[in-house]
Write a protein that binds this DNA or RNA. Structure first.
Ligand SMILES: [Mn+2]
Ligand SMILES: [Mn+2]
Ligand SMILES: [Mn+2]
Ligand SMILES: [Mn+2]
Lengths: 218, 218
DNA sequence: TTCGTGGATTAGACAAGCCTAAATATCGTC
DNA sequence: GACGATATTTAGGCTTGTCTAATCCACGAA
C-alpha cells in the first residue's frame, strides 16, 4: 500500500514522462509544490518499492508495476472529475483539487462501480483519456491547434493544460470539448489565429491558447 | 484545518459521547485501533485547538466548535454511505470502510452538491440521521427492540451497531430499515424474541440482535 | 482510611515527510 | 579540456503521529 505522498510522486513521474521525455527532480518538486531534496528522498523510496528505476543524476523510469499503479491513480482521478462534472454539476475548472483528494481512496469495487455508474466514459471533462480497469487507454492521434494550417476543419479533443484561467477563458469563448471549428487565418506576427466555430461567428485566439488545444480532424 | 487523524479522534469522541455518557481514552483507542497513550497526545492537541476540553484523569467534553466539526464529519460519512448504497449498489454492510476514507475529503461545495444529488436524505442506510449543512439533526424518539413488550407493533428505525456480521444476518432474515413487525413473545430464559414481520411468517431473534435494533411505533 | 487495581498520563524512542544548507555531478561554453 | 551555471543529492534537523515502558491517579473494597 502506498501513502498519499508516494502516490502523488508516482503520478507526477508518470504524467511528466507522458508529457515530455523525462521527469526531472526539479519538475516533480515544482508540480507537487515541494523541494527537490524531498523528491530525491521519495524517488529512493519508490525505487526500493520497485515502482521505478532511479539512476542518480540521470533520471527516472517507471517499472511495469509503477506504471500500472500510476494508471490506476489516473483512472480514479479522471473518473471522479467526470462524476463531479456530469453528476454534481461542477464546472470543469473546479474539479481538479477535489479529484486530487478523491483519487487516493483506493477500493477497486468503488472505482469499478463508479466507472459503470458513469457509463464507462472514455474521456474526462478535459478530454483526457480514462484508463480502463486493466490500465488500457484509448489512444487517439491529436495535434495542437497552433500547428494547424489555414482552412483546416477540426474538433477540439482535449485541453492539455487544465489551468483554471485557461478553462474559464475557453468557457467565455464558447470553446468546449467536441466543438468543431475552421482555421481561417494564422497571423505570423504573434501566432494568433482566427477561428470560426461551426455555429457562430469568427474570433481570434492567442498562440498561448491554441498551443494548449489538442484537436483531431473533424 | 484538521489532519485525518485529528478528525478520526474528534469523531470518535463525538460518537462515544453520543452513545454513552463519557468518552474514555481507552475506548477511543480501542475504536481507532491505536494505543491509549497516543490518544492522550491527540486529546491534548485537540484541546489546544479549542475543539474539546480535556480534564486529565477525568474526561473530555466537546466545545461548540468541536461538536460542529464532528457533525460535519458525520454528515459527510453518512452522505457517502448513502451514495454508495443508493447510487452505486453497495450492500449496507460494505460501505463503512470506504466512507471512513471519503469523509475526510472536505469541500463544502462537494458535500452540499452530493446532499442535493441524493435528495437531501434524512437518514443513512443504517437508519442514522444525517446532519444538514448547519449540523442540525432530525431527532426521533426510538427505543431498542429488546425493550419492547408482547403485542407491540413497531417499525425498524436504525441499527445501532453496524458490524458486518449483524448486517448480513439482518439481510438474511429480511429485516430492513422501515420493516414493520409485531412482537409475539418474549422468552425470559434467554431474552430471545419471536417477531412477525408484516408480510411474512414469524421467527425468532436473539437478545444480541434485538438489543441493536432501534425501533419506533409503527 | 488505607490499598490495590486498572485506567490515564508522561517519558523517551522511532519512522515518515518535509525543510535548509552544503556538497557533488552534469553539461554547454569558451 | 577547464569553468561555471544549474540540477541533484547528501547531511542534518524539525514536526507529526505512533509505540512501549514507566509513572501517576481515582475509586471501590476492606
Ligand atoms: Mn493527489
Ligand atoms: Mn482532467
Ligand atoms: Mn475516517
Ligand atoms: Mn452508517
Amino acid at each position: 500500500m502506498l501513502t498519499r505522498s508516494e502516490e502523488d510522486h508516482l503520478k507526477a513521474v508518470y504524467t511528466l514522462l507522458q508529457e515530455g521525455d523525462s521527469a526531472s527532480t526539479k519538475d516533480i518538486a515544482h508540480r507537487l509544490r515541494t523541494k527537490a531534496s524531498s523528491v530525491t528522498d521519495m524517488l529512493k523510496k519508490l525505487a526500493e518499492k520497485g515502482l521505478l528505476k532511479h539512476e542518480p543524476y540521470y533520471g527516472v523510469k517507471l517499472t511495469a508495476k509503477g506504471r500500472s499503479h500510476a494508471l490506476q491513480l489516473v483512472r480514479r482521478h479522471r473518473l471522479w472529475e467526470t462524476f463531479l462534472v456530469q453528476r454534481l454539476g461542477f464546472g470543469w475548472d473546479e474539479v481538479h483539487e477535489v479529484a486530487e483528494q478523491l483519487e487516493h481512496v483506493a477500493y477497486d469495487k468503488l472505482t469499478d462501480r463508479l466507472d459503470e455508474y458513469l457509463g464507462k466514459p472514455g474521456f474526462d471533462p478535459h478530454g483526457d483519456p480514462i484508463p480502463d480497469r486493466h490500465g488500457r487507454i484509448r489512444e487517439r492521434k491529436t495535434h495542437r491547434l497552433s500547428a494547424c494550417a489555414t482552412g483546416e476543419v477540426v474538433r477540439i479533443a482535449a485541453v492539455s493544460e487544465t489551468t483554471d484561467g485557461l478553462l474559464r477563458l475557453l468557457d467565455a469563448k464558447g470553446l468546449r470539448i467536441g466543438s468543431q471549428l475552421t482555421v481561417q487565418e494564422v497571423h505570423a506576427f504573434d501566432g494568433s489565429m482566427d477561428i470560426k466555430p461551426k455555429n457562430g461567428s469568427a474570433f481570434s485566439v492567442s498562440k498561448e491558447v491554441s498551443h494548449h488545444l489538442q484537436v483531431e480532424p473533424a
